[in-house]
């Protein structure tokens, strides 16, 4: 019951800053909803808008040429800090389907995978190549093929394969949900509990 991840060709939005923490992705004051919707409006709120709520001209999300890009290309250690899943929700709600970085923080990576947002780890070299391509051509397109586990810069056909664990790949491709799966394991979990109790007593 998560959105299925389809093969994707898209422009990309560059954000070549390192250590982007989840407080920047979505500040704490916007975590007060009791429903999971509308978080995209406040994505990167304090970098994207000034104190008066006006768009900051040189922030990449405010650049017309970037609108519609489904791939965010960010510096290393993306998503560090708070475990707020709202960060993944905000990115997805805004329209991103892939975040490319050379290194992801653990909890963010897990949260993204659980929401149909692909955290795609590339080499530092490939990350640099993507950023160069975007700088040279606003309209540069990239292809992400999860089935084949490859990402390609279409204009140059430069391609790199990426890793993802088999279970999470299956979930993303099939739109499968961990909760539904875990509920089917109830009898096995019950047996496990009984065995564990015996060990402790």
């Amino acid at each position: 019951m998560i959105p299925k991840f389809e093969k994707l060709t898209s422009r990309a939005v560059p954000l070549p800053i390192e250590n982007i923490d989840t407080d920047q992705i979505i500040p704490a004051r916007f975590l007060k909803a009791t429903e999971r919707k509308g978080f995209g409006d406040n994505l990167f709120r304090d970098w994207r808008y000034d104190e008066e709520g006006r768009p900051v001209a040189d922030f990449p999300l405010n650049n017309n040429c970037r609108f519609g890009g489904e791939i965010l290309v960010a510096g290393r250690n993306f998503g560090c800090g708070s475990s707020r899943e709202h960060a993944a929700w905000a990115l997805f709600d805004y329209g991103f389907r892939v975040v490319v970085s050379s290194f992801f923080a653990d909890i963010f990576r897990g949260n993204a995978l659980n929401n149909g947002l692909l955290p795609l780890t590339v080499s530092d070299g490939f990350l640099a190549a993507m950023l160069t391509e975007i700088a040279a051509n606003n309209n540069a397109k990239f292809e992400v093929d999860l089935e084949a586990q490859t990402i390609t810069i279409l204009s140059t056909r430069q391609s790199e394969s990426f890793e993802i664990d088999a279970y999470k790949k299956k979930c993303l491709l099939g739109g499968l949900d961990d909760v539904d799966y875990l509920v089917t394991l109830a009898p096995e979990i019950k047996d496990f509990e009984n065995g564990k109790l015996k060990l402790e007593n």
Binding site: S83, R84, E85, H86, A88, D106, I107, G110, N111, N114, N115, D165, Y167, D178, V179, Y181, L182, V183, L185, A186, I189, E193
Partner: peptide, 22 residues
């Protein structure tokens, strides 16, 4: 360890989560 809301739901629903061993 800290988890996201999807995992909060997993544990509420089943008392388990699915994670790679660190």
């Amino acid at each position: 360890f800290g988890v996201g809301t999807s995992e909060v739901e997993m544990a509420l629903a089943s008392q388990c989560i699915i994670q790679s061993k660190p």
